[in-house]
Simulated assay, not measured.
Amino acid sequence: MDISDWRQKIDELDVEIVRLINKRAEAARAIGELKKTADLPVYEPRREQEVFDRVRKANPGPLADAELLHVYERIIDVMRTLQRRDL
């Protein structure tokens, strides 16, 4: 494959990533509603650590765990903001 082929592959993957992030946001929004009803806090550090541990365990590379966790920290931060916004 040449550069244009790889870029096309990345473009296709980006579309799939956007779809999956939005599905994750839908789930986070639903959880936020349940937290609101149950008067639970949006920020749950133990749950976030569980997510990070699971992501680290599932990581086959080539990203180092620290790099992948950096991406997930941002995703979770955005999801937390979504939950707070919907309160």
Rank of each mutant, 00 (worst) to 15 (best):
M1N: 07
D2T: 08
I3T: 09
S4E: 12
W6P: 00
W6L: 12
R7I: 03
R7D: 06
R7Y: 08
I10E: 01
I10V: 08
D11L: 10
D11H: 07
D11T: 13
E12P: 00
E12S: 09
E12C: 07
L13K: 09
L13N: 10
D14S: 10
D14P: 05
D14R: 12
V15P: 00
V15N: 03
V15E: 12
E16G: 07
E16I: 05
I17H: 02
V18F: 02
V18K: 15
L20Y: 01
I21T: 14
N22G: 01
N22D: 07
R24T: 13
A25F: 00
E26P: 00
E26H: 00
A27F: 05
A27P: 04
R29N: 14
A30D: 14
I31W: 09
G32L: 04
G32T: 04
E33L: 15
E33H: 15
K36E: 08
T37V: 15
A38H: 15
L40H: 05
L40Y: 00
L40I: 06
P41N: 13
P41Y: 02
Y43R: 05
Y43L: 09
E44N: 10
E44V: 15
R46T: 05
R46Y: 09
R46I: 10
R47C: 10
R47Y: 07
Q49Y: 05
E50A: 12
V51T: 11
F52W: 03
R54Q: 10
V55D: 07
V55G: 04
R56A: 15
A58S: 13
N59G: 01
N59M: 01
N59V: 09
N59K: 02
P60N: 05
P60Y: 03
G61Q: 05
G61T: 10
P62F: 09
P62A: 09
L63I: 04
A64G: 03
D65F: 06
A66L: 01
A66F: 00
A66Q: 02
E67M: 13
E67A: 15
L69M: 11
L69S: 07
H70E: 07
V71T: 13
V71C: 13
Y72D: 10
R74I: 13
I75L: 14
V78C: 10
V78Y: 07
V78L: 11
M79Y: 13
T81K: 14
T81D: 08
Q83N: 09
R84W: 14
R84N: 14
R84Y: 07
R84F: 11
R84Q: 13
R84H: 15
L87H: 11
